[in-house]
Structures are given as C-alpha cells and as structure tokens.
Design a protein around this nucleic acid. Structure first.
Length: 259
DNA sequence: ATGTCGTCTGGGAGACGA
C-alpha cells in the first residue's frame, strides 16, 4: 500500500508527467496540489483509464486546487477546512477503503505566505490555526489518519539548502515551524524522519538560478501519520526522477509505503 | 540576480503568484 503527495504546478501542463510517473510507480493513492484548473477540466477519463478509478477533486481556476486519486473506493469527502472560511481550494479529505482497512487522508496545499510581515503571512498563520482545529476533530474520529501535501514549511534547518542565509525568511520562520510542531503534537509523526535519509534531501527546487542542478532546495512536502498508522510505515521516500524531466513541476513526489 | 514557470487578460506583452 503506497500513498503519494505531489504538487504538480498545473495538472494541465503536467498530465503526461503524472501518467508516466504513475505507470512506473502505480501507487494506490496519489494526492495532487496546485491543479490550477476547475473541476470540469479535471482529466477524469485519462486518470481512470490509468487505474485511478476513484477521484475526489476540489479545483479552482488559475490557482490552488487539490485532488485525491485512488485505486480503492473513497467516501466521506470533505472540501476545505470545516469551520474556516476560505476563498481558496486548498484542502480535500477522504476516507480510502483499502484492502487492509480504512485510512483517513487529508490532502493540503498550505498557504505560501510570501514573506513575514505581509497580509499573506498573516493569512498563512490563521489558516494553519484553522487546519489544526480541524485536524484535532478529524483525529478524534479517525485514529488511522494521514496528513500530507505541500506544507510550504521547512520543519528544521536540515530541511533547507541554506538555513543560515535564509534564517527567518519564508518557509523558515520560527512561527511557521511552531505551527508544524503543533500539528505534530496533535499526535502526528513526520514519516520521512522515521528513517535514515540522505543529507540534503529536498522536495522542491526553484526554477531559477539552476536550483535543481545545484541542489538548492527545500523539504516542504510532507507526509504526517497518526499513531494508528505509524506502526505500519515501511518507508518514506522522495523521487527526484521526474524533477529531471523536460518541463518539470518544481516539486518532487513523496511516497509513503505501508505494510 | 527583476534570474523561471504557468496562467490570466485580451487579442500582445505584462501582471501575478509561487
């Protein structure tokens, strides 16, 4: 049983990459962010023909947009954060009915936040508070839960290519990292850090300045698991291969393997 | 390093967000 998160930076632009990657990596569940398309433009037929029979989509024109694609049935789909009014399509939640039992999957495209001191940063902070309140309730009801997506937060200095030069800039601030820690304190665990990992493991590289070629990246795409899932975790890996393809997304897919 | 990419409007190149 494998579940993947991938910010595709436009599903229209990246459909062929998604099809090629899932053909080589037929994961059970693929959670996407930054679809940048409306629900009616979601390429449902192509994805179903490639094995993702069950799709829950929460799209938006131009920006944002998230989806859960699954080989197993989905139910109890929730769009956005309950009790947090948001203009953006950033969160979709569903229960996946896997052969090994149900898993509650919360797929988020977290607010970028631009820079500390801006309105967008304040939006990021209130959004993160809303998400935490929502997850507290979800965890009460669903002991087997996975929270994954583009968090737009480096949890620690080792998750950044330049933690000194970028100290207290966006993705690195103490406030953002406090929010990440508070999510963990709800009873979640960063599955990537359950295992020994290569140094300088990142999931995003800027398109500019030869970011990928110089491995100037950040680890901002995460898969957090609840206590009910933690004993099942066999691996968490970042696949850099599609980042090397022509016209790639700036993010790499991150995959959780459960036994 | 105003560095790149994707999408929008409007009917071309600039704005915006990341």
């Amino acid at each position: 049983m494998r579940i993947t998160t991938w910010n595709v930076n436009s599903l229209t632009a990246r459909l062929q990459h998604v099809l090629d990657w899932t053909a080589a990596n037929p994961v059970d569940v693929l959670c996407l962010q930054e679809l940048k398309l409306t629900d009616d433009k979601f390429p449902l037929m192509e994805l179903q023909a490639h094995g993702y029979e069950h799709c829950a989509v929460f799209g938006q024109k131009t920006y944002n947009g998230v989806a859960i694609m699954s080989r197993h049935p989905l139910r109890d789909v929730v769009k956005n954060i309950v009790n947090f009014a948001d203009e953006h399509s950033r969160v979709i939640t569903a229960t996946v009915e896997t052969p090994a039992g149900e898993i509650r999957v919360v797929n988020g495209y977290f607010v970028n936040g631009q820079a500390p001191g801006t309105d967008k940063f304040e939006y990021k902070m209130s959004w993160l508070r809303g998400l935490r309140d929502y997850l507290r309730d979800e965890l009460d009801r669903h002991p087997r839960l996975v929270l994954l997506g583009d968090f737009n937060i480096t949890p620690e200095d080792r998750d950044s290519w330049d933690p000194v030069g970028l100290r207290e800039t966006i993705h690195h601030t103490t406030e953002e990292r406090d929010h990440f820690r508070k999510l963990v304190e709800l009873g979640l665990c960063d599955s990537f850090r359950l295992f020994e990992q290569p140094e300088k493991s990142f999931s995003w590289w800027d398109y500019r300045m030869l970011g990928y070629q110089k491995n100037r990246g950040l680890r901002i795409d995460h898969i957090l698991v609840s206590e009910g899932i933690k004993p099942l975790v066999k691996a968490c890996t970042i696949d850099r291969v599609p980042r090397k393809w022509k016209q790639p997304s700036d993010h790499a897919p991150v995959t959780l393997e459960l036994g």
